[in-house]
């Protein structure tokens, strides 16, 4: 349970307290957890299994959780680790990975400040519907999808993301930057395929 190791002072809750902490601190985040699980797995049944597994682990190791600390980040960290360590291995549908994408993106993750531009108009993004946005997000390799979900959808700070993902803040920044470049490329492809004039965004606008 390395995901739970950072807690320094273990609590000892009574059975009654365990259930009270579970209901009060953990259950309010179950919708966010389910959405995160669904975005990771792209499958409702898999998301169910992942959330259930996470909540059972959280209860089992509840003494490692200090009341009043960031329960949402703690739960997200468990879910992310469960996904990587257990779930991904036994998933009935292995993650679809564009290996060229991964190779390109990982090789350049630490060099994310490279000046790249994607011609994409604000108007084109605004014209895309939810499904097209979701498809563009789902087309990203899972590590890049994850940082965008944590930051843009769930509103975690870089510091919280660093703890959830167990990576330095600098890597959070560069991974996010790279993820957004990739997302823009995917959105641009969608906008183009739908006939939007994506690169007509001249400086004369």
């Amino acid at each position: 349970m390395d995901e739970l190791e950072e807690i320094k002072i273990p609590q000892t809750y009574s059975d009654l307290e365990k259930h009270r902490v579970f209901d009060k601190e953990f259950m309010p985040h179950i919708d966010s957890m389910y959405n995160f699980a669904f975005r990771l797995t792209n499958d409702e049944d898999d998301a169910n299994d992942l959330v259930q597994d996470t909540y059972l682990k959280a209860f089992r190791f509840i003494n490692s959780f200090s009341q009043g600390t960031n329960a949402k980040a703690w739960l997200f960290r468990i879910l992310k680790n469960s996904f990587i360590n257990d779930f991904r291995k036994k998933s009935k549908e292995p993650a679809k990975v564009d290996y060229q994408d991964v190779e390109t993106t990982y090789n350049s993750e630490e060099d994310a400040e490279t000046n790249q531009t994607v011609d994409l108009r604000v108007e084109s993004v605004q014209d895309l519907i939810g499904d097209e946005i979701a498809n563009a997000l789902n087309a990203l390799p899972v590590d890049f999808r994850t940082v965008i979900i944590l930051c843009d959808v769930e509103g975690f700070t870089y510091e919280e993301m660093a703890k959830i993902l167990d990576i330095p803040i600098g890597t959070v920044r560069s991974r996010l930057h790279r993820a957004r470049m990739l997302l823009k490329e995917k959105l641009q492809s969608y906008a183009k395929s739908l006939g939007y004039n994506v690169n007509a965004d001249s400086m004369a606008d």
Binding site: D31, N35, V51, V125, L128, I133, D152, V153, L187
Partner: peptide, 16 residues
């Protein structure tokens, strides 16, 4: 715009 789009237009699923 992209950040707002991700926040507002991605479908939010309710946990069963």
């Amino acid at each position: 715009c992209i950040k707002e789009t991700m926040q507002l237009r991605l479908e939010k699923k309710c946990v069963p």
